Computed example of a mutant assay.
Amino acid sequence: MDAIDRRILTVLQRDGRMSVTDLAAEIGLSQTPCARRLARLEAEGIVAGYSARVDQARVGLPVSVFIWVELDSQSKDAIDAFERAVRGFERVMECHLMTGSRDILMRVVAADLTDFDRFLEEKLMRVPGIRSTRSSFALRAMVKRQVLPVG
């Protein structure tokens, strides 16, 4: 990946709907080589897809909750089973296997406290193998980036 590829990625992260013609003009490359580079970046999985960023509060999910999960076992089978379970929970926006005393860190969205409580009781706490959980509610996002610093 060279400097031109990095410029393509930077521009696309700002506006993934940009046409190849506009992208080529913005980065100073003709359309055909730009299209080839973009196709290669997509084929290599560097450009993993395109989507719209949706404001979670405006769709009725203003609450973000970070949940630390400690599992009974840290075996591969236990972690895989937990991962399979939470992949089916649409409220789980992120789920990370972590180092340290807690095993998992998740970010969950909810409409309100009652909605979050329902998620805990009906979904998360029914997953086998959880030893304990700790939840923290985000008051506000101080930094929230969508653009990776690839330049």
Rank of each mutant, 00 (worst) to 15 (best):
A3H: 14
A3E: 15
I4C: 02
D5M: 10
R6C: 12
R7P: 01
R7N: 01
I8K: 06
Q13R: 10
R14I: 15
R14C: 07
D15L: 07
G16L: 08
G16Q: 04
R17F: 12
R17Y: 13
V20F: 07
T21E: 13
L23P: 00
L23I: 02
L23C: 06
L23Y: 02
A24T: 07
A25T: 08
G28S: 07
G28C: 09
L29S: 14
L29P: 06
Q31T: 14
Q31H: 11
P33H: 01
C34N: 08
A35I: 10
R40F: 01
L41Y: 13
E42P: 10
A43H: 14
E44H: 15
I46L: 10
V47C: 14
V47S: 07
A48G: 15
A48M: 14
G49V: 14
V54F: 08
D55K: 11
D55R: 10
R58W: 13
R58I: 09
V59N: 06
V59E: 04
G60D: 09
L61N: 05
L61G: 09
P62C: 05
V63Q: 09
S64C: 07
S64L: 13
F66R: 02
V69Q: 05
E70D: 12
L71F: 00
L71I: 02
Q74D: 12
Q74V: 05
K76C: 13
D77A: 10
D77T: 09
I79R: 12
I79A: 05
A81M: 01
A81R: 04
A81K: 01
F82L: 02
E83D: 13
R84M: 02
R84N: 01
A85E: 08
R87M: 03
F89I: 05
F89W: 04
R91P: 03
M93W: 06
E94T: 04
L97K: 03
M98N: 01
S101E: 10
S101K: 11
R102D: 04
D103K: 00
D103E: 01
D103I: 01
I104Y: 02
L105K: 01
L105G: 04
R107E: 12
V109E: 07
V109K: 08
A110V: 00
A110F: 03
A111M: 03
A111V: 03
A111L: 02
L113K: 06
L113Y: 03
T114C: 00
L120I: 07
L120D: 03
L120K: 01
L120Q: 02
K123M: 09
K123G: 05
L124F: 04
M125E: 06
R126T: 07
G129W: 03
I130T: 00
R131C: 02
S135G: 06
S136D: 11
L139S: 11
L139M: 10
L139Q: 06
R140N: 11
R140W: 11
A141E: 15
A141Q: 15
M142T: 12
K144A: 14
R145V: 11
R145D: 11
R145G: 12
V147E: 15
L148E: 10
L148C: 11
